[in-house]
C-alpha cells in the first residue's frame, strides 16, 4: 500500500516538476536574454489562470477555445509590459529593474484581487472524468494534459533555439547585446519576444494548476517555488531549469511522503525545496548547470 502511495507521489512529483520546469524555463528565458530577474513570474500564472477562468465562466466560451485565447492575450500582455514598463529601464542598474519587477508583482496581485476577489474560485470541470488510470495509477486529466503540453513546449523550445532565426537571435542577444546588434538584430524586439513567450508559457502552468487547485492568489506562490528550481539548475541554463523543476517537484512529493509516514512535522512539503536549495548552493554555488564560459588556453 505504502509503496503504491510512494509511486503515486513520484508520478505526481514528476508531473508537477515538469510544470515547475516550464515556468523555470520562462524565468530563465527572460533572465538570459534581458538580464532581468523577474519577480513577477508568479503573477503571469495568476493572470493567465484568471483570464482563462473568466473566458470560460463569464464569457462561457468552450475551454478549447478559451485556452488558446489566453495564450494570445498573454502574448500581447507580455509585449505591452515589456514596451511600457521595462523598455525605458534598459541601461538602468540591475537593482532598479529588480525593484520594478517586485513592484509589478505587488501591483498585479492587488489588481487581480480587486477584479476577481480574494477567494479561490473552482475551475469549471473541463474533463468528463475525475482521474485517468495510467498503469494502475490515478492521474488527474488536467495533469495529464499539462504533461503533454509541457513536453510539446519543451520540444518546441529546443527546436526554436536550435533552428529558428529568431531563436538564434535570442541566443546571440543573451551572449552579447552589442554583438547581436552588429549582426542587425533588434535587441528591443528580442526583449519584447522574450517577455511575450515567457508570459504565454507561464500562463499555461497557471491554467493547469488553477484547474487542479482552484484559481486564487495562491497561484503566484507557484512562482516563488520556481526560484529553487531555477537556482538549482543554474540561473542561465534552460536545460538546468527543466531538471531543476523536476528535482523540486519530486522532492516536494517525497518530502510529503516522508512527513506523512514518519516525521509528522506538518508542512515539510513547502519548505523542503528551500532546504535543498541551500544545500546545493553550498556545494555548487553556480547551480548544477550554471555558466561555464569557454576559455581557450
Amino acid at each position: 500500500m505504502t509503496s503504491s502511495l510512494l509511486l503515486q507521489l513520484i508520478i505526481n512529483g514528476l508531473i508537477v516538476g515538469t510544470l515547475y520546469g516550464v515556468v523555470a524555463m520562462c524565468f530563465v528565458l527572460i533572465y538570459k536574454s534581458t538580464q532581468v530577474v523577474n519577480f513577477a513570474q508568479g503573477e503571469f500564472l495568476l493572470i493567465g489562470a484568471w483570464t482563462c477562468w473568466w473566458l470560460v465562466t463569464s464569457m462561457e466560451l468552450p475551454f478549447w477555445f478559451a485556452f488558446p485565447m489566453t495564450f494570445v492575450f498573454m502574448m500581447v500582455f507580455g509585449i505591452v509590459l515589456q514596451m511600457v514598463v521595462l523598455r525605458p529601464l534598459i541601461g538602468e542598474p540591475v537593482i532598479s529593474v529588480i525593484m520594478v519587477t517586485i513592484g509589478l508583482s505587488i501591483f498585479f496581485q492587488a489588481v487581480i484581487k480587486s477584479i476577481f476577489g480574494v477567494w479561490a474560485q473552482p475551475f469549471p470541470e473541463i474533463f468528463p472524468v475525475k482521474s485517468v488510470d495510467v498503469f494502475g495509477l490515478a492521474v488527474q486529466p488536467a495533469y495529464l494534459m499539462s504533461l503533454v503540453v509541457s513536453l510539446v513546449i519543451m520540444v518546441a523550445f529546443a527546436w526554436f533555439f536550435k533552428y529558428s532565426r529568431m531563436g538564434l537571435a535570442m541566443r546571440a542577444t543573451a551572449f552579447n547585446q552589442q554583438v547581436a546588434q552588429s549582426l542587425g538584430i533588434s535587441v528591443k524586439n528580442v526583449f519584447a519576444m522574450a517577455w511575450a513567450i515567457s508570459a504565454m508559457v507561464s500562463a499555461l502552468a497557471g491554467v493547469v494548476v488553477g484547474m487542479v487547485n482552484g484559481v486564487s492568489s495562491a497561484l503566484s506562490f507557484f512562482g516563488i517555488k520556481v526560484f529553487p528550481a531555477v537556482i538549482v539548475g543554474g540561473l542561465d541554463s534552460i536545460v538546468g531549469a527543466i531538471i531543476g523543476g523536476l528535482i523540486i517537484g519530486l522532492l516536494e512529493n517525497l518530502a510529503e511522503y516522508a512527513d506523512g509516514q514518519f516525521l509528522h512535522l506538518g508542512n515539510l512539503y513547502t519548505v523542503a525545496p528551500f532546504y535543498v536549495l541551500v544545500i546545493i548552493l553550498m556545494i555548487k554555488p553556480y547551480g548544477l548547470f550554471g555558466t561555464k564560459t569557454i576559455e581557450r588556453v
Partner: peptide, 11 residues
Amino acid sequence: VMEGRRIIEDM
C-alpha cells in the same frame, strides 16, 4: 566585424 572577433562562442 568588431575588434577581437566577437563570434558567439556557445554556438
